[in-house]
Write a protein that binds this DNA or RNA. Sequence first.
DNA 1: TTGTACGCGTTATCAC
DNA 2: GTGATAACGCGTACAA
Lengths: 352, 352
Amino acid sequence: MDKQIDQSTIKPQASRKSTGLRQVAAVAGVSTATVSRVLNNPESVSEGLRTRVLMVIDQLGWVPNAAARALSSNRTGAIGAIFPALGVGDFARAIDAMQDALAARNYLLLLARSRYDAALELVQARKLVERGVDGLILVGSTRSQDYEQFLRRLSIPYINSFVFDADSAIPCVGPDNARAMAEMVDYLVSLGHRRFGMIAQTNRNNDRAAARRDGVRDALARYGLAIPPQAMVEGEWSIAEGRKLLRQVLATSPRPTAIICGNALLAIGAVLEAAEMHIVLPRDLSIVGYDDTELMSELPQPITTVRVASDRVGKLAADLIVDMLEGQTSVSGARIPSEIVVRSTTGPAPQD
Amino acid sequence: MDKQIDQSTIKPQASRKSTGLRQVAAVAGVSTATVSRVLNNPESVSEGLRTRVLMVIDQLGWVPNAAARALSSNRTGAIGAIFPALGVGDFARAIDAMQDALAARNYLLLLARSRYDAALELVQARKLVERGVDGLILVGSTRSQDYEQFLRRLSIPYINSFVFDADSAIPCVGPDNARAMAEMVDYLVSLGHRRFGMIAQTNRNNDRAAARRDGVRDALARYGLAIPPQAMVEGEWSIAEGRKLLRQVLATSPRPTAIICGNALLAIGAVLEAAEMHIVLPRDLSIVGYDDTELMSELPQPITTVRVASDRVGKLAADLIVDMLEGQTSVSGARIPSEIVVRSTTGPAPQD
DNA sequence: TTGTACGCGTTATCAC
DNA sequence: GTGATAACGCGTACAA
């Protein structure tokens, strides 16, 4: 009798196409609960059953359904991250490290791209939340009211990366952009420079770029110095712009003796253009950049720059958000130190 | 009476925390089915109800739960893509375009990275499938037996990108790597070059690199030419390696008059190193690369290279996989044309 | 056009 | 340690 009943109750299950956990349970002769436990809490299942179930899983090639799991457990095991761009030097390195760190802790990274567009970023955040991410890694700390409100209503944790603000309410992982630039200014002033120009990265929806610019300005102010408006220009993220803007800055008078660039590509463009203008670095002019990509050291003229361990930013951000999710105590942020890498594009200010 | 019944039936729903669609339905005074339809099939709902429901949704700030939706509809609206690397020139451009194209058609891109590691790629594929992606975009077309089997068993479509093989069973979107290199060889031979060297990208788990190398070899063979083993070297993806390998190739005798590099960074390294060795391009030597990044044209010496519209690869791959999902007829692949961009690192072979 | 009711595949809370 | 079984939130026949 029992057997007959078993079979008749199995039939309808078998007709349910080639589904999952239930199948495994049936074949292994255990309950669905046990199969689930083998996956999520192996220690709570006896050795014997566990191996048996694992064999069946392997044999059937069963892959658990993440959607069902998410629906039932209210966790997806996915972390969302929104970056302005994905292929750009420091972000790319951070993303790689983030992915590795998350994978190591059994989380998946969901990447979105905001293109430095505030509205788009909010859209992306919504999509990620809709997708059920357990936490969010954002870049920067300045956002619109709408966005702030959206985040506040959220029941999931989020952190800011690539910025560091000691007294921010929400955790930050990143360099102190302003301080990094201040150190660069100190270095240049110590070389005797007094007239500065800046090829800044555009500030539009980019508080890191703004912080770098402000860092330069404030540091200079401490020495009683300032960059004249015409010698302060803005560009995006390309060599071509670095070239163009160098000419623009050098056209001002009196000519600056040191030019600070807001990112790596702008610096590379500036240095290349200087060479074409037969300006000898660092004899006639000093140029510095921000971020240390391979190019900064491999070009004919290695460029002095600020180095930030972006991979550490990525890894720590990943670890931090997972810690927050798993209720670790250490939910503070971290300031990633920056460092001035002196190469051959900086030297004593020319005498005039 | 009716009112009282309504209220008493609403109470238990209200106690169910701050859930979703049901809430919206209750507040809007419609059924859950209607709310669902407003989202997934708006035309089938009367104007009046639709706007009312939309207002309530907005007011409550409700975000549909993707997991529940996926579980119920058996589609996630997510496409998985596995790339060897994410931040690398052509891949980065393709990824950007892919994301945009997918977003335009209301799909989300789930990105994974295989690091040119076959085993890791299979792991990533499994994870993406577990995550319920509706389709898969892969790179290349050569894979292990295990992997092939895994894909065959899959019930979701997948395509190969960055390769093109006219008689492949599964759709491809990409350049014909071998043909692109063959054209480059034709060009160099037409300039009088007869002695060639090659700084290839390593072939490990990279059939595109292999195809490029084979393309060069076969094209040369047609002219009765060949690259001597010592002049055929391999590197990864860095300027430093391009530098080192150039010296290696130039140490062979007789010295090649033309050197073909397997990617952009290797070419840049080679060109920079040549300059440091006081070798004048193209008078003494011709060097070409593969892939056209900004650097290839902005460096002091613009580099002759193969240009492939990677963004088109990304966009077309995205459109193709979605077409396959949505049952469009046009499920063939596409060959993305490549083009030789002649710059200043190539010229007539030196006379000896 | 709109509403009812069931099922999607898993987790988790109970009993045993 | 193990097994029933009720959620989880949404889509969708089917009925009205």
